[in-house]
Amino acid sequence: MNHPLLDQFNQWLQQFEQTGSVIDTTRLNEWNHLMDQFQTHPEQLSSNHAQWIKTLAQNSKAMMSVVEALQDQATDSSEQLKKLREELHQFNVQLLLQQASLPQQMAPLLFTHTHLSTLFNEEQLAKFEQLKSSLNTPQFEKLNQLIESFMQWQQAGQTLTEEMNQITELATQTWQEQFDDSLSAKDQIELWGKIYDNTYQVQFQEPSMQLAQSGWLNGWADLKLAWKQLLTQLTEQAGLPSPEQLDRMIEQLDQQRRRIRQLEKRLSALESGDHNG
């Protein structure tokens, strides 16, 4: 089957190879354009696996930006290492935040996005403190609790990021010690992955890491519950079914399910008794 986009990509590859695999701005722009096309119209290549085409193009672009960033510092190994650490710090933060995106409705209330790009700094925390103290009347109690939970979750995130940055630091040291220039880029990446994950596992034996991870998860649960309570207050005020009413209804349904199950079991016992008799 003919795939013009794939043909263009193959042509680009051929030219890239012919010119001694040197990537200049023009070639990079062409490549970026091709990847954008794959991301925007993946179905041109495969309607069955469009999502995978998109993911591959996305990953490749992300990878290229890291390579570019590292290559900028290619002449100085300490600068390169510094850059790598920064990238890893960002990775840690992203990893954490990916695990918890705020419910859409909560986001505007907390003046932030559903996917945060960074954790809080002191200045932002101070702003939230200020906001909280300006809402100290009983009617804002639930909202205040939500803000308080949000701040605590953010602080827990800081603690966990610090722990994870320590892991990065230790793993980077080990990597430097084991660095083998003769390894291919692929093997280097795999080696790095193994070293990092081993360090991570060892660090997880430390109570400080366990507490940091759990503190962050617990903070997240508190935040979600505070949000639920605020929603309950708002929906009840508006005369709408609230999350707590829904919870009670589910509980009643469960009780009924259990009663039916008991009856089924009794019936079955009676039936088998009849047969035996």
Binding site: F16, V22, L56, A185
Partner: peptide
């Protein structure tokens, strides 16, 4: 060169 070679390899795999 190492970067470029790695880049070329990865792009071939991608294609």
């Amino acid at each position: 060169n190492r970067y470029n070679q790695a880049l070329l390899d990865s792009q071939k795999e991608l294609a």
